[in-house]
Computed example of a mutant assay.
Amino acid sequence: MAVIPVALGGRSYDVHVEHGLLEQAATLARPLLRKQRVPVVADTNARRLHGDRLERSLSEARHDVSWFDVAPGEGSKSWNGLAQMCDWLLGEGVERGDHVLALGGGVVGDLTGFACAILKRGCGFIQLPTTLLAQVDSSVGGKTAINTSAGKNLVGAFHQPSLVLADLDTLGTLPQRELRAGYAEVLKYGVLGDRAFFDWLQTNAAAVLALNSDPLQHAVATSVAAKARIVAEDERETDDLRALLNLGHTFGHALEAETGFSDRLLHGESVALGMVLAARFSARTGLIGVEDAARVTHAVSAAGMPAELSALGLECDGARLVDHMRHDKKMDAGTLPFILLRGIGEAFVARDVELADVSAFLDEQLQLR
């Protein structure tokens, strides 16, 4: 088992990465479960696929489980979804010292974490991420949020979990497309800050995506460790360090907005294509060589994700995509920071990017075949 600490003083916690962790959940969470009755928020698919394993573990430890089901998809991260969950938690008698379990992907983790951040001014929660994207990204670091009509993740709070159990067995039930989309976040850690890991992924990507045990655990644990180091140094993104985790996201969120935050483009796919665009824009401005940009493009394409903007069939121009970017929550005094590259493994925050140049660049990319 890999155990990665997230060092945040009195709010520190461990991330466990291993097979069979749902069977060990009650044992590993024992110090945090104060009451016989344990509230569990679950994606309906995750509960169907993995709920029995979790409930068996808790039952054997003499806990009763109370379930709150969340429909799959970003639509559940809403004001209404938040209100329903808070009402349920209050009805369950959840107190500030209690812990709520979140079983599912990023939607469940974000929604549960935000509800726990505001319920009675803060109660505890435990992340049980069941998707690759959630295991390597959203379950670690304490960012919680819901979506509004104005955009994605614009209302939220920093609220760290008390424990994360990333059970690798849950990944075996993922559709291939979702698995590949999660791999985009794994690849991101190599592109932004670890060229050696990027090189390793180029050799081992197929084994990771085939869920071969040792390569998979190495990929997930390395990704979590990278994020843990960044979060420990810049928890609330007040410096530029944690901002590097947004590599691919400024371009990607614009693409998600243009496609209606739908299954037409999954979040991980948007991040992967966003990384390609960030690399190509970096090459266009002379920051990196075209060879490095091509390597990023190949890594995304080889993992079975869209690597060309034109392949999305968007009926828009670069200016429209830039308009989506203007609603980005990172916009500050009329300036939008971009995460660009000086090389693979050398991401940085650029605050001098002209949006007119981005618009022209995107027009070019929309025409590429």
Rank of each mutant, 00 (worst) to 15 (best):
A207Y: 05
A207G: 01
V208T: 12
V208E: 05
V208Y: 08
V208H: 07
L209C: 09
L209K: 03
A210C: 00
A210L: 03
L211W: 09
L211T: 03
N212T: 13
N212F: 01
S213D: 15
S213W: 00
S213L: 11
S213H: 02
D214C: 00
D214L: 00
P215C: 06
P215W: 04
L216R: 06
L216Q: 03
L216S: 11
Q217D: 13
Q217S: 14
Q217F: 03
H218E: 14
H218F: 11
A219I: 10
A219G: 10
A219Q: 04
V220W: 07
A221C: 08
T222E: 15
T222F: 06
S223M: 08
V224D: 05
V224S: 10
V224W: 13
A226N: 12
A226Q: 14
A226C: 05
A226T: 10
K227H: 11
A228F: 08
A228H: 13
A228R: 09
A228V: 13
A228G: 08
R229F: 00
R229D: 15
R229P: 01
R229W: 10
R229N: 15
I230C: 09
I230G: 13
I230L: 11
I230W: 01
V231P: 10
V231S: 14
V231T: 08
A232R: 07
E233C: 08
E233R: 11
E233T: 02
D234N: 05
D234T: 04
D234C: 01
D234G: 03
E235W: 03
E235Y: 01
E235D: 07
R236Q: 15
R236P: 02
R236M: 07
R236S: 08
E237K: 09
E237I: 04
T238S: 10
T238E: 08
D239Q: 15
D239G: 15
D239V: 03
L241K: 15
R242A: 00
R242Y: 01
R242K: 02
R242D: 06
A243N: 00
A243H: 04
A243I: 06
A243E: 07
L244Y: 05
L244M: 04
L244N: 01
L245S: 12
L245A: 06
L245N: 12
L245M: 06
L245G: 07
N246T: 07
L247H: 03
L247G: 11
G248L: 15
G248K: 14
G248C: 14
G248E: 09
G248Y: 14
H249R: 01
H249F: 07
H249G: 06
H249M: 03
H249D: 04
H249N: 07
T250P: 10
T250E: 10
F251K: 11
F251Q: 09
G252N: 12
G252P: 13
H253W: 05
H253V: 08
H253D: 09
A254K: 00
A254T: 01
A254I: 04
A254Q: 07
L255K: 12
L255D: 14
L255Q: 13
E256G: 12
E256S: 10
E256K: 11
E256W: 12
A257E: 07
A257D: 02
A257W: 08
E258M: 14
E258D: 10
E258Q: 15
T259A: 13
